[in-house]
Design a protein around this nucleic acid. Structure first.
Lengths: 151, 151
DNA sequence: TTGGTTGCAAATATTTTGCAACCGG
DNA sequence: CCGGTTGCAAAATATTTGCAACCAA
């Protein structure tokens, strides 16, 4: 399966990043990363925890939290801005934006075509040294719109 | 003072919005809104609470939380996306973006000139009905950069 | 062997809720 | 007076931390 190969590649990158930073390659770390990488739902910590627990019953929530934080530091995953209490994670590092459904809280990836890249306001760089930026689009997703139409 | 006049205008709008929605104009509601409106620091709930308490010693934190939520529903303030545990609030409703300092967690407003408005990716509307969107730029602010240079 | 990592338990931080008293319209 | 709002206390939710045992390198 194509996605499998992609995930394996990502895991290789993770191992390399760990070595580079003097961090160990533990089965928990691999498994937690794999969970985020294979999901397209931008899972929260609890969801990752449940999924990992089915394979490693002894894993603990705090390990998941600690690992997600360290994966973020390694730039292997990003935390998705959303106005909700639960942090969501994304292992897709290609530049893209997010559509956030305010009804079901689903997060969708939005990719853009060439020429559609947004340009930051000129005034932005006056505030300091820019590291990254991101755009969220909020609204009601197709799935939720249909639920209402149907009834 | 000009800002005072602006704030008074905003408070009038708030009163109107309350009447329109069958909500009461209470001193707490006014005071909490005024705190957000007069600050340019995008305060969190705790900060608003402390500020309001200095004028109304009996106010409680939960009233602040409830009121901030209702002001948001009335579209009198917005909640600022940031990756931090504390929600931040902004009473400036003009379209603008935010610069988030990852060092001191300060939030700065970024306004854009005519012609600089961003255009959403064409693919965005395929996900559903868009309500609003916002852009955050993350980096290290001038103040924090200078602190390091100075030492 | 050794220091980064884990699991457990407990703590923290932020925000929310039930309820009776209160007060704006 | 009526029903929205408040203050109080307690709870709920999400996340973090101290620490001893563990295990990857």
């Amino acid at each position: 399966m194509n996605t499998e190969i992609l995930i394996d590649e990502k895991i290789e990158k993770l191992k390399e990043a760990c070595r580079l930073h003097g961090m160990r390659v533990t089965p928990q770390r691999i498994e937690i990363f794999k969970e985020v990488a294979k999901s397209c739902a931008h899972p929260d910590a609890e969801t990752v925890y449940e999924a990992v627990k089915s394979k490693m019953p002894n894993v603990s929530v705090d390990t998941v939290y600690r690992t997600l934080a360290s994966l973020e530091e390694l730039n292997m995953i990003i935390r998705v801005d959303n106005l909700l209490p639960k942090a969501r994670f994304d292992a897709d590092l290609r530049p893209h934006y997010h559509f956030l459904c305010t009804k079901c809280n689903e997060v969708y990836d939005i990719f853009f075509e060439e020429g559609e890249e947004l340009t930051l306001p000129k005034s932005a760089e006056a505030f300091g040294q820019i590291k990254d930026y991101n755009l969220q689009i909020r609204g009601i997703c197709k799935k939720c719109l249909n639920k209402h139409d149907g009834k």
